[in-house]
Design a protein around this nucleic acid. Structure first.
Lengths: 343, 343
DNA sequence: GTGAAAGCGCTAACAA
DNA sequence: TTGTTAGCGCTTTCAC
């Protein structure tokens, strides 16, 4: 048998005051006699009172909830983003509704609808489709996350600093004696691919290497996509050591599998550099050297940016979070072992 | 500039009816003239009406939200559970608040408080601490998930069928010629450890093997915990091939790392069987043979079970979901290579 | 400093 | 079939 949950009226009655006084005491304690306040607080504790956020939301027009829509909750990177956002939201005493669209535009749209109906105060979205227009139309404040954010010009966004990340990667490659790596990138349709390639090209030119001599292979952002792309690379005529820069850790791991399949060894015959920093990269052998995106920080910053938007100080700016290199040994040091240098 | 969001009154006015008629038309269309209904629906579409769940929640006492508290959103297994729950909830047009306690009882408690304040209609919890009593006291319907559920007698719970899973594992071990595997299990404090050990003991006796001869090592349910445990195993005096049955994939992968560290090889020198079915197990070399828990199904069933509770048909039963074996080659076939048989 | 009353958007009981 | 009304729990004027 379930008891009715105590309301502010129960508290007020027990404290012998009106409900407005009780509300004031409970809220901030302003304009309330210290003694009254204590009595109300004691009463609240006694009856086990807990403020009803639904009612508050109705009254104030603020639900105290935010939404987060990511493409894949089972991807450790996105899970990390979700955790960062969650923690930051909790600190502000706000609840976060996390939805995974599983790369399905239909699902994404229905999630967005659910968010609107739940009357979230704002949403953070990594857009798979263009349903975003809907959000805009209803005036729901939102912040974009990830690379595809660039499609929407006048919206705040948070992502990783691809340019700095690529620079970090190329520096590491050069330091180990690798010149023009093979690039394994995502599908042509994805904006992230273009951003990655542009960054590589820019930084490669800075290093006096002709970008045109770099081989590019593409595929889905998955294990299998990376594996297939690597197999194609290995099918080309080649001399000496091969270096690979993959746009995503899953692809990098797939590439590693392909190398092993062909009876070659990493890093002895093929060096591989990944991008993301997912934990699985630590379990391969050799471990995957990669550029780690600060997923958690991205989530946290996105929430902060959203708060700004909601509170009416929209920056409408892009925030780029710096990445860091994690060296786990999947790149050969060609300078110390010059016998393996490419022809 | 943000427009005020249209309410049912806007719809009613535009359709030229009262708001209750509009509500009826919008709800189920009962007791409303077909023509009126059409008019209301058209008006709703025209003004871009979207039902306010907060208001509905206030009126009906049902917020249309459920809570899910798991120990670690970054663990692929739990992410999978979350996804299963999310999808099932979405099908019933219910939102799911997902919280990760990160194994921290304090965080767990604050998440539970947040759920109560958000007035979720019920919660699914994998309890880290005993704060559950609170939930019970406030009469929030809830369903437990995972092994520790057994601590709470009169509450519905959903978990994997440990007994069947262990049987599957032992069958596989026996089929490959392994008799009494070393067991790497979790910390003594955890109920899951006991359940696992009991199941192993029971099924071992059925196979006419003396459980007493099995070596047990324990550690945290993490990569490092498994690694340390395995190092201790390798430090013991031993003869021939070693077989290991780990209670968790992360531990199993940690064990695999320890084996490599010591210059031994898996599966040639050491066979390892995991338990969970996380994707990372596919990236190790060799791939990790493991018993996969149906995380997604567990999440989905937990939601269904919770619906039952909420709608007043509490089963207060435990549901055990069957697991399946995933063979990826981390066990040597001792029967076909008898030279490696243990002494 | 405190209380009375209005109202957020909706649904359900009752009248018409 | 439709309209009127009350009220879910809370905050916030406006009096006192």
């Amino acid at each position: 048998m379930r008891r009715r949950r105590p309301t502010i009226i129960d508290v007020a009655e027990r404290a012998g005051v009106s409900k407005s006084t009780a509300a004031r005491a409970l809220a901030n304690g302003e304009s309330v006699l210290q003694e009254t306040r204590d009595r109300v607080l004691a009463a609240a504790r006694a009856v086990g009172y807990e403020r009803n956020h639904l009612a508050v939301g109705m009254r104030s027009g603020r639900s105290g909830m935010l939404g987060l829509v990511i493409p894949d909750i089972a991807n450790p990177f996105w899970a990390d983003v979700a955790r960062g956002a969650q923690d930051r939201a909790a600190k502000a005493d706000v609840s976060l509704l996390v939805f995974s669209s599983d790369w399905d535009p239909g699902k994404e749209e229905s999630h967005l609808r659910a968010l609107r109906r739940a009357r979230v105060d704002g949403a953070i979205v990594n857009p798979v489709s263009d349903a975003l227009d809907d959000l805009n139309r209803f005036g729901l404040p939102f912040v974009l996350i990830g690379s595809s954010a660039e499609r929407f010009a006048d919206v705040s966004s948070v992502g990783s600093d691809i340019s700095q990340a690529v620079e970090l990667g190329l520096d590491h490659l050069v330091a180990k004696g690798h010149q023009a790596p093979v690039l394994i990138v995502g599908p042509r349709s994805r904006l992230a691919r273009t951003r990655f390639l542009n960054a590589v090209q820019r930084h490669t030119i800075e290093r006096d290497v002709d970008p045109a001599q770099m081989v590019i292979e593409d595929g889905e952002y998955t294990l299998e996509g990376g594996r297939q792309a690597m197999l194609r690379v290995l099918d080309r005529p080649r001399v000496g050591h091969i270096s690979v820069f993959a746009a995503n850790d899953m692809m990098a791991i797939g590439a590693m599998m392909a190398v092993r399949e062909r009876g070659l060894r990493c890093p002895d015959d093929v060096s591989i550099l990944g991008f993301d920093g997912i934990p699985a990269g630590a379990f391969t052998s050799p471990g995957l050297t990669t550029i780690a995106k600060p997923g958690r920080d991205i989530g946290a910053r996105a929430v902060e940016s959203l708060f700004d938007d909601i509170e009416g100080r929209p920056e409408h700016g892009r925030i780029y979070m710096p990445c860091r290199l994690v060296d786990r040994g999947s790149l050969a040091d060609l300078l110390r072992q010059p016998r393996q240098l490419a022809g």
